[in-house]
Amino acid sequence: MAVRIPSPRPVGTVTRGTTNPNRLRRMDRWIAAVHGGAVRRDRDGVAVDLGYGAAPWTAVELLGRLRTVRPDARVVGIEIDPVRVEAARRYERDGLAFAHGGFEVPLPGGRRPVLIRAANVLRQYDEAEVHAVWERLRARLAPGGLLVEGTCDEIGRRHVWVALGPEGPRTVTFATRLGSLSRPSDLAERLPKALIHRNVPGEPVHAFLSDFDRAWAAAAPFASLGARQRWIGTVRALRRDWPVADGPGRWRQGEVTVRWDALAPRG
């Protein structure tokens, strides 16, 4: 699938472009497991890896993971830096293409993707700009589509992302390699831009992380059974006061998903 779309003035700015193989594996696997049905039902099955960076590894990996739920899934990697696009084109193959662009998400024929994944893209923007970017990207989604926007560390151990539908933000997911975790609030440094400056007293996300730490401390007896069992016990306690949106199958992966409206910034 060749994609050659002139984009005279892409919307956005160039990121640092740092990336590593498997950096986004937690996000990809969550998308495939939780939202694979939407990918299967979509007419075109096109996903976008927005701002894939200086190397195309994340787009290549996204295609492989989506094809576990839809064999004819397609991925377009979009980058605002034309040099990166040209460098990536040697990796193009059936179902994988690269295009020059930004938040306007250029696809041939005005197609709308069922998925836009924007990882580690908005960290460099001001918080005040986030909602306008979200609105622009959501407007590009196919009916029933999904925007996943978040931040992770360099090797994908810790990751927090927001899932948004065409109607707006739905959930926030916290994901970690459990063996690397001292306490759940370690994930605060990976909060997406819409939340990272809100981790202060009086804001819901701060209250959530504080309760998460308390539940983790109370679940210390489970540590003898391993970090996974401690995490599961922690989330079971946490959901008494917070609208946890997933179940033990995801908790076992070192994840927990909470409704956005419970964590949304005040004001």
Rank of each mutant, 00 (worst) to 15 (best):
A163P: 00
R41Y: 03
A99D: 06
G110L: 07
R138T: 03
A194R: 09
R252N: 07
L209Q: 02
L24N: 15
A128K: 15
L147S: 00
D44R: 14
P113K: 08
L191C: 05
D44L: 14
T151M: 10
P106V: 09
R259K: 06
V148T: 07
W251E: 01
V256I: 02
R70W: 05
V256H: 09
G36M: 08
G249H: 12
E79L: 01
A73K: 08
L147A: 06
R240K: 15
H206T: 07
A237R: 15
T176W: 13
R158L: 10
P106G: 11
D72P: 10
V85L: 10
L96P: 07
W242C: 06
R90V: 14
R29S: 08
R157I: 12
A207K: 03
A139G: 15
R9N: 11
R84V: 06
S185Q: 03
A264E: 11
A142R: 01
L178Y: 09
F98N: 10
S7R: 14
A227T: 12
V258N: 01
D94T: 15
V69K: 04
G12V: 11
V3K: 00
N20H: 13
F98H: 09
R236A: 11
V130L: 03
R214H: 14
W57G: 03
D28G: 12
T176Y: 06
A54E: 05
N20F: 08
V39A: 08
A175Y: 04
R214N: 10
R266A: 12
Q253C: 14
A99Y: 05
V121H: 07
R74G: 13
V121F: 05
R70I: 06
Q229W: 15
F174V: 05
V114L: 00
A227L: 14
H197F: 14
V76L: 02
V34W: 12
S224V: 15
L141K: 00
R230N: 04
L115M: 05
Y91Q: 11
L24H: 15
S224T: 14
G247L: 02
R40K: 13
T68F: 02
R70Y: 01
V200Y: 08
P143V: 04
Q253D: 15
R9Q: 14
V244P: 05
H131C: 04
Y91E: 14
T15G: 15
A207D: 15
D49K: 03
A118L: 09
T234W: 07
T13F: 08
V75L: 07
R90K: 14
K193C: 05
L181F: 09
R112T: 01
T19L: 00
N199K: 01
A264H: 13
H159G: 04
L107V: 00
R266C: 10
Y125V: 06
E129C: 07
L137F: 01
R214M: 05
R170A: 13
L62N: 02
P204L: 01
